[in-house]
Amino acid sequence: MTLKYLVRKIVFYVVALWAAITLNFALPRMMPGNPMLVLVAKFKGQINPHALSSYAQLFGLDQHTSILTQYFQYIGQVFHGNLGYSFGLYPETVTQVLMQSLPWTLFLLGTSTVISFVIGTLLGIVSAWRRGSVLDSVAPTVFTLLGAFPYFWLALVALYFLAFRLRWFPIGHAYSDTVMGWSWANLPDILYHAILPALTIVVTSIGGWLLGMRNNMITTLSEEYVKVAKAKGLANTRVMLRYAARNAILPNITSFALSLGFILSGALLTEIVFSYPGLGYELFQAVGNEDYPMMQGALLLIAIGVLVANFLADLVYVRLDPRARRAQ
C-alpha cells in the first residue's frame, strides 16, 4: 500500500514539475506583441546580441517551427540544465549564477525555518497544556500581531533600528567586503550577517506554528487516551509530550511541507530587504534589469526547490503516520 501512495505522490510531483516548466515556457509569450521584436527594441545595443539570440533560441522565439516543436525543444534544454545566458551578467549562464546564490538561500532559510518551527511548536504545546495561563494569553496574541505586520516593513524597521542606529548588526549582505564568499574561516562573519535576517523570519513566522500546534493540542487533549494516561498517574511532561503532542504534531508537519512555498516567498522579501545574495535577491535584481532569462530561471529553480522539499516532507510523513501508509 505504501507503494501505491508513493506512486500517486510521484505522479503528482511530475505533473507539478511539468506545469512549472510549461508556465515558464509560456511567460515570454505573455508579453504584448512579438516578444522577440519587443526585446530587440528594448535592449538596442545594451546587451550582448549572443545573450539575446540564446534566449530566443531557448524559447523558440525566432523559429518558424510549430509551437509544439519549440515546446519540446525547450523541455529538452531545461533537462540539460540549459537556461540560457543572463542578460545582465552576460558571459555567465543563468545556471551558473543561480548555483552561486542557491546555497545562501538554503542556509538562511533552512536555519531560520527550523528554529521557528521548533520554538513555535513547543510554545504551542505548552500554551495548550496550560490553557488560560499567562503564557497562553500573551504568546499567541503577541505573535499573531507581529505576524500581521507586512514582513518587509518590519524587516526594514528592524534594519533601521538594530543595524543602522544601534549598529548591533551589519547592514545587509551575507559577509563582509573583506572576505570572499564561503569558507570555514569566514563562518563567524557569515553567521553574524545572518542573525538579523534570520531573526526577522523567526519572529514573524512563529505565530503560525504556535497557533496551529495549540489548536491541534487542544483537540488531542480531549481524547480518551490522554485522559487515561493522566488517570494512570503518569508524569505531566510525559503525558504532554509522549501522548498528546506526539499525535497533535502531525498536521503541523503537513503544514510545514505546505508552507515551504510561502516560506520561500518570504525569503524573497528577506533577501531583498537585507541585500542577501540568495535566489530571491537574484530574481529581484533580474526584474530590475529586465533580465528575462534570469527571472525565469530563478522562478523555475525556486519552484523545483519547493517541489523537492514537499516530496521529502511527504516521505517523512509516511514514516511518521501509519494511517497515511494504510490509506488509499
Binding site: 503528482f12 516567498s265 530574481l283 525556486i302 517541489l307
Partner: peptide, 21 residues
C-alpha cells in the same frame, strides 16, 4: 489545485507583474 498550491506564489507574482504589459 495542488499544483497551484505548491507553486511558490510571490516569485510567480513578481515575474508575472514584470512580464505582463
Amino acid at each position: 489545485t495542488n499544483v497551484f498550491l505548491i507553486i511558490p506564489g510571490l516569485p510567480l507574482v513578481i515575474v508575472l507583474a514584470a512580464v505582463l504589459p
